[in-house]
Design a protein around this nucleic acid. Structure first.
Lengths: 240, 240
DNA sequence: AGAGAATCCGAACCGACGTTCGGAATGTTA
DNA sequence: TAACATTCCGAACGTCGGTTCGGATTCTCT
């Protein structure tokens, strides 16, 4: 007799008793993530997931109440990761001594690099958020958190900013940058642009745009390359 | 006996003989467009379309070879419209005497206004282009055409531009603007921004950003309000 | 009016997919 | 090893939606 106990907070995911259970649960999640990101959510059947994970449909339903529970578990897993990553990335201590310019550059490079991880699944999550307002708000809040974090970093350096109204300008540039990055990172949306520059010139032009909009003082030789000292900020993947 | 003649160029849409036929074909297209934009493509069944159009499933299949034919016909209808609209919008004669600033402002206002027409269906078309590379390229080319049109208008006025490399800078700003506009216009993506300004301040800030990036000369009283003289450019819908 | 074509109807068909369930296989405990 | 729980299997079921098809209805032309 199976104790039908679902972990409500985790959206009807069963808590395994044996180590065997955890292993298949992970492989199910991995398989689902891969398939959802490759083919989309609706196009992936439960049988597909089971086959990819090397187990049966029954096993899927042993672990997850239904197909959407699998989805929610995946979204939770992903957002947890992202929350951690961005939390570290916008930690003020990490950016001590950095200029606005450094931060912007780091933001662009970081977004390009991290945005290219799990691109398909991020898209699948967005697909899910079309129908599910709860997921939409969840992801929106996550993104807004990150943006607010960067905004705080910049506003802490408002002495560098010549724009008359930094409270308006800073959120604006951040949205500006993240919009461009989203377009650039989405394989479908990319087709909608006319820009075909490498990541380097892209980052450079972003920097130039922000510099002039925020009216930062021009670069002096000594204020250059003030990247944070500790763990280096992730660099953009070089375009081939 | 029905002559089974499909119009291959129009993706297996039947050419009606009687006026009655054309009427139901139109109402089918209208119903499909409404439903696709409301619920998405996959979530809309053929029976739904038939019901909304006030006819039977059989009628649907009398006019369209299959469900995707209906889709293609709709995409074709939409792109035809868009092509016309943008062609008129970027006509150089329309912008005689206009400054770079005028054009940017017109572009933003125009995009805000036209982007809010049929938002759902545009999204559905994007959804379709996920799976169908042909549609993706088609829409991409359409968008790129528009962008190139605006770019040409701006490059024709390169004497106003202080940026050292207008060939790079102009496509960059256009992608920048269209990215922001896309985010602002997509109900899901909007959740991903921290900016909650009205259309007016948004347009204003866009203008400011572009002005400083392209290094345009500051506004003089006489160069102001040089909007095209003929048919007025569509204005942005005022935020309530 | 009447014959033949065009149009439309909707019940029936069919495959795909989510879900269930009885039992087999595997692990755990005594 | 015996008894019991956990985990897993996969055939079977029900639903849903795209598609088909034979016949009813409407139109056109003479």
């Amino acid at each position: 007799m199976v104790k039908n106990r679902w972990i409500s907070d985790l959206h009807w995911v069963r808590e395994g008793q044996q180590s065997r259970s955890q292993k298949t649960q992970q492989s199910l999640l991995d398989a689902a993530e891969a398939l959802f990101s490759e083919q989309g959510i609706k196009a992936t059947s439960v049988a597909d997931v089971a086959r990819r994970a090397g187990c049966s449909v029954g096993a899927v339903y042993h672990h997850f109440r239904d197909k959407t529970a699998l989805l929610y578990a995946l979204v939770e897993r992903m957002t947890e990761e992202m929350r951690e990553t961005t939390k570290r990335a916008v930690d003020p201590r990490r950016w001590e001594g950095a200029t606005v310019r450094d931060i912007i550059q780091g933001y662009v490079e970081f977004s390009l690099a991290s945005g290219r991880m799990r691109p398909g699944f991020k898209h699948a999550a967005l697909e899910l958020s079309r129908d599910d307002p709860q997921v939409r708000d969840h992801l929106g809040e996550l993104k807004a958190d990150a943006s607010r974090g960067v905004a705080r970093l910049l506003l802490d350096r408002r002495s560098e900013i010549g724009h008359p109204d930094p409270e308006t300008a800073v959120p604006f540039v951040i949205d500006q940058l993240s919009s461009m990055l989203k377009m650039r990172l989405d394989p479908v949306l990319t087709k909608m642009t006319i820009n075909e520059h490498s990541d380097d010139t892209f980052a450079q032009e972003c920097l130039r745009s922000v510099t002039s909009y925020l009216e930062l003082e021009p670069v002096t030789s000594e204020s250059e390359s003030k990247h944070p000292t500790g763990a280096a900020a992730p660099r953009a993947v070089k375009a081939s």
